[in-house]
Amino acid sequence: MLKIIQTPVRFYPFIGGVEKYVYYISKELAKYDDCEVKVICANEPDTIDHEIYNGINIRRLKYYGKVANTNVTLSLPKVLYNEDFDIIHTHVPTPWSSDWSNIISRIKNKPLVVTYHNDIIGTGVANYIAKFYNSTTLILLLNKADKIIITQDDYINSPHLQNYKEKVTTIPNGVDTNIFKPIDSPRKNNQIFFLSVLDKFHKYKGLDYLLESLVEVKKIIPDVKLVVGGKGELLNFYKSKTEELGLKDNVEFKGFLTDEEVIKCYQESELFVLPSISSLQEGFGIVVLEALACETPVISTTIVGVSDDVIDTESGIIIDPKNVEMLEKAIIKILSDKELIKNMGKKGRELVKEKYEWKKISEDIHELYEELL
């Protein structure tokens, strides 16, 4: 029996790209007869400390505040040390959980797999902390890693991976097309969907630019409607900005959405937009795959992991980051052509089914584990 421990900083029901990645690969790996999967993470949002969900053994630990968006779980070292495991799979950018995974795997002489989702950066004081971490502890982590997974080929260009190219392999993110799928009912006319945590750390998702673009879009499409899913400390900031831009009637903030509500928003909307602005922080953009699987056209930026495939399959429009004018034109082009919406949607789902099913992704990861052992 292959005993796997995953150590994301947070896990389901927390919503985020890394959390979704760990959830879906763990769920698929748990279906294998030879795999036991355990996730050890911080208890955020506060829920059951210990449960088995979709075959995944989940242990959530009390945390004592956060440093650089990373929950500090003081019991993690002891808990990890007392676990019986064959392999630890940890994730960057999450110091603490990844660093203790490194230390415990060294002590117990077990293989360590690191998925490098994106670089660790910060602003202000956090930037100095990030630089110090990257020049010290991150090096120790990557030195020990037996394999480093990146989710898009471009990430090999990260300055922090230059000395480890022989260990790096690309395995993309995925989506479950049995869950994320279109429905027969008509979509809501001129509705756009955006989904992200609304906090300072996730400002790189580009909601500011999307709101600014709607000012011009509204002149051409007066009833354009943006549905924003997600909550966080910047929710009131974005609501105020919406009012300042004269968009109060055109933007609806839904707050936290359940899995079912997220899927419904993808299915009902004519367009999904993820205008990410930072290649250092945007690891892949799983939400783009989810939208495509629901036959919803997408607009995103060149830094998102699936951008080349979106261009090749004509399943959406890819623009430059921070380019509000390009974003305006792309939104108007898609929403003004209902036939284009249908065609882009069908091409998007075909792309996902062909290349980005979680089942295929988990097979690649399972094979990687077996090679290491």
Rank of each mutant, 00 (worst) to 15 (best):
A68P: 04
P95D: 10
A130I: 00
W96S: 01
L161A: 08
V67T: 08
Y128A: 04
G122P: 09
Y64L: 13
N57W: 06
L112Q: 09
Y128M: 07
F132G: 09
K108C: 12
K66L: 09
V92S: 07
K66W: 07
K147G: 04
S97G: 01
N82F: 15
I121C: 10
H117E: 13
Y155A: 02
K110Q: 00
V67K: 15
V114P: 05
L142D: 00
S97E: 02
Q152E: 09
T123I: 09
K110R: 13
H89M: 05
Y63L: 14
Y133I: 01
S97M: 06
I121R: 13
I139W: 03
L140G: 07
D146L: 02
S75R: 14
H91K: 02
T94E: 03
S105I: 11
T151N: 11
F132E: 10
P111K: 05
A145S: 01
N57R: 09
Q152R: 10
S98F: 01
N71G: 05
I103K: 05
S75H: 13
I88E: 03
H117N: 09
N57P: 05
K144Q: 02
V125E: 11
I104T: 00
I149V: 12
N57M: 12
N69K: 15
F85K: 12
Y116P: 09
P93Y: 03
L80M: 02
N127S: 13
N109T: 04
L76F: 14
Y64W: 15
A130F: 00
Y128H: 14
H117T: 07
R60Y: 13
I148N: 01
V92Y: 12
T136H: 04
G124M: 15
L161C: 14
N109K: 10
D86G: 05
L138M: 06
A145G: 01
N143L: 10
K108R: 15
V114T: 05
P95W: 00
N82R: 14
D153R: 09
P111I: 07
H91M: 04
I107Y: 08
D99Y: 00
N69W: 15
I87K: 03
I103E: 02
L80Y: 01
G65D: 03
L141T: 00
I148G: 00
T137L: 06
T70D: 14
D99Q: 01
Y128K: 12
V92K: 11
L161W: 11
K110Y: 12
H91I: 03
Y63F: 15
K144F: 04
S97I: 10
G65E: 07
V72L: 12
N102W: 01
N118V: 12
S75A: 10
H117K: 03
N163Y: 11
G122T: 04
D119G: 04
N118G: 07
L76I: 09
N69Q: 09
K131M: 04
L74V: 06
Y81P: 01
T73I: 15
H160W: 15
T115R: 08
R59A: 08
W100F: 03
